[in-house]
Design a protein around this nucleic acid. Structure first.
Lengths: 232, 232
DNA sequence: AAGTGGTCTAGACCACGTC
DNA sequence: ACGTGGTCTAGACCACTTT
């Protein structure tokens, strides 16, 4: 007889996933308690807990104290997107990276940007720059930085290093939001990205804070054909 | 005198995050070993491990056996997108959900779809459907399902329930890939989504497998103005 | 009130990678 | 070879939630 051995939390996780996928534990049903599973698997409850927690984080289990653990009815799969530096992204594709600053000015931000950041009339650094891959336009970066939050950026040479890269290295942030959308190329965008006006462009808008202090808001407009890919 | 108390792994995590953000542990620098931190924090090494592992998963620390733990030079922030069923997404916005099947046929899939799924000439179910929010077009679903992988789908009434929803409930998958892009509306898409041809549309392409068996490949084309939002 | 997951501890052994 | 993180154990107490 002797049940198979489950010595590691990963082997327990594999077995749990197998039972879920095989419908031995159907969606919505309650699964045995940690203590029972520990006995069945012949390991410590801590190990079972580690495994179940990992599966729950993946969205396949719902766990609640007292209520127990149930197989998720609508497995909310989570796709994780890694937000990297643009230079690293391009070089990772095996292409040559180049960067061209188009504009840098100190101004009051337009109303929509102020609203996103929750500020009023603070002086902002406005930077527009183009990132190129193998000498062809890759993405247009349109950025506002709240100077009071990152005063040292005024001493950075943004003709050589992108604001994107400088901020990643020098301006830590605690949280932010990010939005993905599609947008028709404006006349200006079409010129910079070497495409036709009205072309469908992939856009990422990101706003970040350091604690309560707003840092920056950026709009990245990608050249036609860009695809953001990840795994499930 | 007496160092502050860190009884829980979350309090340890908070302190670690504070030191990283405050640059007490600058980017690229090595931080003390788990054992040393356990002594400093006055807790078990297990607790320190739990905290550091969580911070490492968030991308702020790089951990390697023997090499030790370092503050990440380029913190790779991860955005997690939850993939839900479309009806839940629309109802979650407080809008009325409606669904209209446009087409369902059993055919051989076109070459690009076969290539994505890694199959040849298998019979496929092809479904085209429109999801509406408050009676206006929300997203167009264009889907291919490999019948051999999910035979029971032929008995489902896809005029009432969307293939999206049926599959989530009845066809478990182990892994998949997902791509986001922007695309100009074709004549057909413009008609279904009630927009102008050439309009910039947000597109999600998803392909899923159950183990080695390909399940389905779907292209979701959203009506103009759609934004996919998440937090960092 | 009681049951379930969440967490902490102290000690131990192990796997991996760097030296 | 050896140092560091990775994990396991057995037992205990606690927090949250539902009954």
């Amino acid at each position: 007889m002797s049940a198979p051995q489950f010595n590691t939390w990963q082997s327990v996780q594999d077995e749990v996933l197998r039972r879920i996928h095989a419908r031995e534990w159907p969606p919505g049903s309650a699964i045995p308690h940690e203590a029972d599973l520990a006995v069945e698997f012949g390991c410590a409850r801590t190990t079972v807990n580690r495994a179940l927690r990992a599966v729950a984080e993946a969205g396949l289990l719902d766990r609640r104290r007292k209520a127990g653990t149930r197989v998720a009815l609508h497995p909310v799969r989570k796709a994780t997107l890694s937000i990297t530096i643009i230079r690293a992204e391009i070089e990772g594709l095996g292409m040559a990276y180049a960067y061209r600053r188009i504009l840098a000015e100190t101004v009051k931000a337009p109303a929509p940007v102020q609203r996103r950041l929750g500020i009023r009339n603070d002086p902002m650094l406005h930077v527009r720059a183009l990132h190129l891959a193998d000498a062809t336009p890759y993405v247009l970066e349109e950025r506002w930085v709240r100077i009071a939050s990152v005063p040292t950026i005024m001493e950075a040479d943004l003709t050589q290093q992108s604001a994107n890269e400088w901020l990643v290295a020098n301006a830590p942030f605690t949280h932010g939001d990010i939005a993905f959308s599609a947008s028709a190329a404006s006349e200006a965008e079409a010129t910079f990205l070497a495409c036709a006006p009205g072309a469908a462009l992939f856009v990422i808008a990101r706003t970040t804070w350091n604690g309560a202090a707003p840092i920056t808001s950026v709009r990245l407009t990608y050249a036609p054909g860009y695809r953001m890919v990840t795994e499930l």
